[in-house]
C-alpha cells in the first residue's frame, strides 16, 4: 500500500472542502502520520478473509409499498438557505 502519502488537494477537491495552503500542509502531515499508523494492518494476513461491511447478519430487510405522510412544504422550504417560490435555489451549475 502507498504508505503515508496522501494527495490532500485532490482528496479535498473530491470532498468539496476548500483548504488554505496552511491547512493543506498541516493535514498532509497529520494524515500522513495517521496513515503510517494504519499501515500496521498490512501485517495481518487478510488474503482468504471475507470483508465485513456489517456485523449484523440480517438479510432482505424491506418495506411494503405503502405511503407514509410526506413533510409540509413550508416546513421544508423555510429552512432552505435560499428558496425561490416553491423551489430550492442554487447558484450557477457549471457542467463539470
Amino acid at each position: 500500500m502507498q504508505s503515508d502519502s496522501i494527495d490532500v488537494r485532490y482528496v479535498a477537491r473530491l470532498a468539496r472542502i476548500a483548504l488554505t495552503d496552511e491547512e493543506v500542509d498541516r493535514f498532509s502531515e497529520q494524515l500522513g502520520d495517521l496513515l503510517h499508523h494504519v499501515d500496521a494492518l498490512s501485517e495481518l494476513d487478510t488474503n482468504i478473509v471475507a470483508a465485513t461491511a456489517q456485523v449484523v447478519e440480517s438479510r432482505n430487510v424491506t418495506r411494503s409499498d405503502e405511503r407514509r405522510p410526506s413533510l409540509d412544504r413550508e416546513t421544508v422550504l423555510e429552512q432552505a438557505p435560499r428558496r425561490q417560490g416553491n423551489f430550492f435555489r442554487v447558484p450557477r451549475i457549471i457542467a463539470e
Binding site: 500500500m1 494492518l41 495481518l44 487478510t46 470483508a51 465485513t52 461491511a53
Partner: peptide
C-alpha cells in the same frame, strides 16, 4: 485501505 480494514474487522 477500505477493503483491508473490513477484512481486519472480520478477524
Amino acid at each position: 485501505y477500505y477493503v483491508r480494514a473490513q477484512k481486519a474487522r472480520t478477524l
